[in-house]
């Protein structure tokens, strides 16, 4: 009885999945849509909104749209732009060499504030729910793990800090850097059995970092009339001291995410004491 029920259930699920798959793939191989050829393999960046993010002329583009109206959509390329050279071009409207960072932190900085808030809430939920789960005795770690974790921890911390300080120049940024720092703390928690992670201190650090993020946004509001607007000169593209507040915000996000994920990992290992 149970077996046949399971089999019929699987069969129905498989039929559903196959039907959905046929639907997906016929959409992929449809040659045209409303008379236009689907640009699956010959996408041009000039047809995309990201053109202005890449060329860093978003303000010019919005001015152009305000004066020319709908004509903008057919000739995006006529918005004034200049050639950007690594290490030479100065005082762009946004100065980070990493385009993804420029979108995440500068053009869509408010999005990132929301994202950090979601992570914060999920870690709060984790801390609340984990209460009552008692700590299990773990097996004692071997000598290699004990010495290795002590030896490696400062280097992991340094690597995490390097990743989030160079977030506007290289791949990475606040979130990967924070995750690396949390992995260093995880190594300590697993390697040293009498290592106590102080969650109160980490929560204070995390809250201060969050307040600093909002504070930077408010400074932008008072100086440039827009929340999270860039109020520091952007400098030369490709240098460490460039990109204005992008580097500042990524440092704050790195500290916040590192403290947050370390708290989560420590709570998962130790359970909650105030149960």
């Amino acid at each position: 009885m149970k077996k046949t029920e399971f089999l019929t259930g699987s069969f129905i699920a498989l039929t559903l999945v196959v039907l959905l798959g046929v639907f997906f793939f016929q959409a992929l191989f449809q040659p045209s849509y409303e008379g236009k050829v689907m640009p699956i393999d010959n996408v041009n960046l000039k047809d995309r909104v990201s053109l202005h993010y890449v060329l860093k002329n978003v303000n010019d583009a919005s001015k152009y749209l305000a004066t020319n109206g709908m004509r903008y959509f057919n000739n995006r390329s006529s918005v004034p732009s200049k050639t950007i050279t690594f290490g030479k071009t100065k005082n762009l409207e946004e100065g980070s060499a990493n385009e993804v960072t420029s979108i995440v932190v500068n053009y869509r900085g408010f999005d990132t504030l929301g994202e950090v808030t979601v992570l914060f809430i999920s870690i709060i939920g984790l801390t609340m729910l984990i209460g009552g789960v008692k700590e299990k005795k773990l097996r004692m770690p071997s000598v290699i793990v004990r010495t290795g974790s002590k030896f490696l921890f400062p280097f992991i911390l340094l690597f995490g800090v390097y990743i989030f300080i160079h977030g506007h120049l290289t791949p990475g940024g606040g979130f990967p850097g924070g995750a690396v720092i949390a992995s260093g703390f995880l190594l300590l928690l697993l390697g040293l059995e009498n290592f106590k992670f102080n969650t109160t201190v980490s929560k204070v650090i995390e809250s201060l970092a969050g307040v600093t993020f909002v504070g930077i946004g408010l400074v932008g509001l008072f100086m440039k009339n827009s929340f999270l607007a860039n109020f520091i000169p952007t400098g030369t593209i490709g240098f460490l001291y460039s990109a204005g507040m992008v580097a500042l915000i990524y440092i704050v996000v790195g500290i916040k995410v590192g403290a947050e994920l370390s708290t989560g990992v420590a709570e998962l290992k130790e359970g909650n004491k105030n149960d």
Binding site: L45, S77, I84, T85, F86, E99, V104, T170, G238
Partner: peptide, 28 residues
Amino acid sequence: PILTNTIGSIGMNNLKFVDPLPQALVLT
């Protein structure tokens, strides 16, 4: 989509990058 020394320069007539906007969304 990262401007480096080897890529050199970008402009309207030599756009070498993939679209960075979906990558930013995926990061979130």
